[in-house]
């Protein structure tokens, strides 16, 4: 009680997310044609470790200490590449599903980090409906894991709470896994 979001907030997020997905579709072709910077080397679809490092960064994946250069987000190799439209627009549905699976598997055994939230949101925004059975199972696993992590939070001020609530909301309400929804 007090940790889960109101119905009104959930409905707003579903509406906004639906708009975002439409815009992604509308602009996908434009962004697909953009040339990526030389340092952006996307892993092959079956390179699980490569994708985890690409999205979350070496600091998180290799458990190395984070160095604060004072310029956040500059070192993408260490901090992970953000889900820029020019990157996610180049992912086909098979890759979207595969990366989603890699990141959800990673989250099963580790703590939530901000990069993870951004990537999961971006991948869900690119995941086409109707979902394949594997995708159903995958996103349900994500919502359950978010619920478990949320249940262990000690404070409502925890930075992770809003991100966890958002992901649960989108899986349950946008992708219609209603039994997992916060009432």
């Amino acid at each position: 009680l007090g940790f889960s979001p109101s119905l009104k907030w959930q409905q707003q997020q579903v509406g906004n997310f639906s708009d975002i997905r439409q815009s992604v579709n509308k602009h996908r072709q434009l962004w697909q044609t953009k040339t990526l910077d030389d340092n952006v080397i996307m892993p092959k679809i079956d390179d699980e470790e490569g994708w985890k490092r690409f999205c979350l960064g070496e600091n998180v994946c290799l458990n190395t200490a984070q160095t604060d250069s004072g310029e956040p987000g500059v070192d993408y190799i260490k901090m992970g590449f953000p889900p820029f439209l020019s990157i996610v627009s180049k992912l086909n549905q098979a890759t979207v599903s595969a990366v989603l699976e890699y990141l959800i598997n990673w989250f099963e055994e580790r703590e939530f980090v901000p990069q993870l939230g951004r990537w999961l949101y971006a991948l869900l925004a690119c995941l086409e409906k109707p979902l394949l059975p594997e995708a159903h199972s995958l996103i349900r696993q994500l919502a359950r894991r978010c619920s478990t992590v949320r249940a262990n939070l000690e404070s409502k001020d925890d930075e992770r709470l809003s991100a966890l609530n958002l992901l649960i909301c989108l899986v349950a309400r946008y992708f219609e896994q209603n039994d997992l929804a916060d009432k």
Partner: peptide
């Protein structure tokens, strides 16, 4: 003229990241 350029300006390379950050921030305010 058509409104297309305005839309493109708003919908930049970081649009998904901004949308996520906005959604997360909205819970903190709610």
């Amino acid at each position: 003229g058509t409104g297309q350029s305005d839309d493109s300006d708003i919908w930049d390379d970081t649009a998904l990241i901004k949308a996520y950050d906005k959604a997360v921030a909205s819970f903190k305010k709610s």
